[in-house]
Each structure stands twice: as C-alpha cells, then as structure tokens.
C-alpha cells in the first residue's frame, strides 16, 4: 500500500514576466518502506514537487493548479495550513542539501533536534532530551550529550548532516524526503551519510524519497527511480531497469554521462544542449530539442508517462510506439 500517491500535480510560478511551469502533470506513488530516487538536472522541478506537497512553496508566486496528493488517505493539497503543519515533521520529515545553512546558527543543536518532539506529541522536556540524545547516538554521533549543547558551527559538515537526519527521524515519520542530502559533503562523508539514512530507514520502516542529481547515489540506495526533466517525470522504473534497460532517451543520455560508464581515453560526456526554458507552455516532448531520436511528431504531440513494460513507464512517444 502506498504511503504517498500523487496524481496530476501541476505547480506554476506566476512571475511578473510570465508563468513558469515548474511542475507539469506529475504522478507517482511511494510504497511503504521503499526508497525512491528522484533524479534530474538542477531546476527540473524535483525539489519543488516535494516542497509543494508540504506547503513550503511561497505563495504567491507559487500556485498549485491541479492534482491530488494522498498521504495516509488524506489529500495534502487540500489540507489547511494547520493540518499540514501537524503532518510536517511528525509524519513527513525533510532533510536539506546544505546542513550549514539548514540548521539555525543561533540555536543549540539539542534545542533544534528536540523541537519536532516538543511541537507534536505532548512530550516533557526531559523525555525530549533523552530521546534526542538517543536519536543523535542512532545516527552515529559520538559524545551525543555534549553535542546537544553545541552550536551548529562547532560541528563538521558530516556531523551536521547527521544532526539533520536525527532531527528528521526523531518523530518516527512514515516518509522522509531527503533533498540532495549529500551534495554539500565530501565524497567519503557522502557514503557514511547515506548509510545512516539507510539504517534509520530500516529501524523505523519509513519510506524515503531521495532527491539527487547524482545517478551514482541512486544506484547504491534506491529501489525505484523517477527521472524528471523540465518539470515532468519522463521515466519511472526499478533501479536495475533504469540502469540496464533505460526506456527514455534522456535517461540514456544521463547514464552516458556517468564517469563509471566512461571509456578510458575518451572525453567525459555531457548531455548536449540546455534544458528548456519553463517560461510558457511546451507543446510536445520537452526533451525534443536535445534528443538524438527526435522526429517531427515529438515536437507537436503532447506526451504523457505510459507503461512500456513490467513496472516500467516512459514518456517517450517513440518508445511507446515501439520504434526505439
């Protein structure tokens, strides 16, 4: 049974010089306990999709135009601010990219880790304290009692991200949204932080939505992958299928850019061209201008995500037609 089921989500930013179609007809679901990777270039709408579910998009200018997002049988997009606030932090938790700026420099680590507990279930300060210490120990922070009294700037980047994870997991949420959790960290620390997320997930049975632009991270951690491009999901499949049998030209292009796929002596590849401008409506396939397989129909016909195999969906017309 799915924890989160999003249908036809559309989000637009109404700016003075036009309307940005940030998220366009996005549908997906996340099952209990699974880890779903959401990949795509920066600006493709992966973060805003999840921020909008939690009501964290400033409005105006952001506006959700349509869609439903059922979480535990309740439509997040139709919740009042109060209802959403009760869900945020308690049932859905989120960790962010840069643990330096995402932690409040003026408050002690302990205060911030305890805050979700103090807000949601009635929980005494002493109980919150001991649970926070346990939470910090669970994410592998040595000397947790002392760290509780520290300020964020006194911790290293890796430790700060662990604090973020502890803070997110302390309420035992059903869904953890990890927005580029390792991007700001050293490569060696990245693996540790991913392991910590994995461990926390196994202990609580939470589902994880891992937002990243790094296909390498997806390979090691995720059960399923959603590939986003220009505010849409262009391919959705199990991790193995994505890596070994990609069914969308954009996914293929992304995989070719991986350093691991790279032949020694050959230049490193990148996806040629630039992502489209989301100002204004895009008719047809948004990837068409960069696609090596493009035909005239791609530029004109509206595309949508369609099943192209067992638990595998693609938004490529030609794949859907069986041409490639």
């Amino acid at each position: 049974m799915s924890v989160l089921s999003v249908k036809d989500l559309r989000l637009r930013f109404h700016l003075r010089h036009g309307v940005v179609h940030a998220v366009d007809s996005v549908s997906f679901s996340i099952e209990r306990g699974e880890t779903v990777g959401i990949v795509g270039e920066s600006g493709c709408g992966k973060s805003v999709t999840f921020l909008s579910l939690l009501g964290l998009i400033p409005s105006p200018p952001g506006r959700i135009e349509s869609g439903t997002a059922h979480f535990n049988g309740r439509d997040l997009l139709r919740c009042t601010t109060g209802q959403l606030r009760a869900i945020r932090g308690r049932h859905i938790a989120m960790i962010f990219q840069d643990p330096m700026s995402a932690l409040n420099p003026y408050l002690r680590v302990g205060t911030q880790v305890m805050e979700p507990l103090r807000l949601h279930p009635s929980c005494s300060r002493r109980e919150a304290w001991s649970r926070a210490v346990t939470a910090l120990q669970n994410v592998g922070i040595p000397d947790a009692e002392r760290r509780m009294r520290a300020y964020p700037h006194q911790l290293s980047g890796g430790l700060r991200q662990r604090v973020m994870i502890a803070m997110a997991m302390i309420t035992g949420p059903q869904l953890l949204i990890a927005d580029e959790p390792t991007t700001a960290l050293d490569v060696t620390v990245q693996a540790q932080v991913l392991a910590v997320i994995k461990k926390a997930q196994q202990e609580t049975g939470a589902a994880v939505a891992l937002i990243t632009h790094d296909m390498g991270i997806v390979a090691g951690t995720c059960d399923r992958v959603l590939v986003m491009y220009a505010g849409r999901i262009v391919e959705s499949a199990g991790t193995d299928a994505i890596f070994y049998r990609p069914r969308h030209p954009y996914t293929k292009a992304l995989l070719e850019t991986l350093p691991a796929a790279h032949q020694p002596g050959q230049p490193l590849l990148n996806v040629p061209g630039r992502p489209p401008d989301l100002l204004g409506e895009i008719r047809g396939c948004p990837f068409a201008p960069r696609c090596p397989h493009v035909v005239d129909a791609c530029r004109e016909t509206p595309v949508s995500l369609q099943p192209v195999g067992d638990d595998h969906a693609s938004a490529c017309l030609r794949v859907q037609a069986g041409e490639i």
């Binding site: 939690l54 964290l56 606030r85 009760a86 869900i87 945020r88 932090g89 308690r90 938790a93 989120m94 962010f96 840069d98 700026s101 995402a102 932690l103 409040n104 420099p105 003026y106 408050l107 805050e115 979700p116 807000l119 949601h120 973020m164 803070m167």
Partner: peptide, 23 residues
C-alpha cells in the same frame, strides 16, 4: 534555509518568527 527547515519540522509561523528569525 533554516527557516525552511523549521517550517518543514512543523513549526508554526509564530514559532518561526519568534524562535528562529527574531534573534
């Protein structure tokens, strides 16, 4: 960013202002 974190934790607007931004 830390204000967004606070909101994601479920802190109310009053709490965001008084506890996180005021200082």
């Amino acid at each position: 960013d830390f204000v967004r974190t606070a909101r994601a934790k479920g802190v109310s607007e009053t709490g965001v202002v008084l506890r996180h931004a005021l200082w």
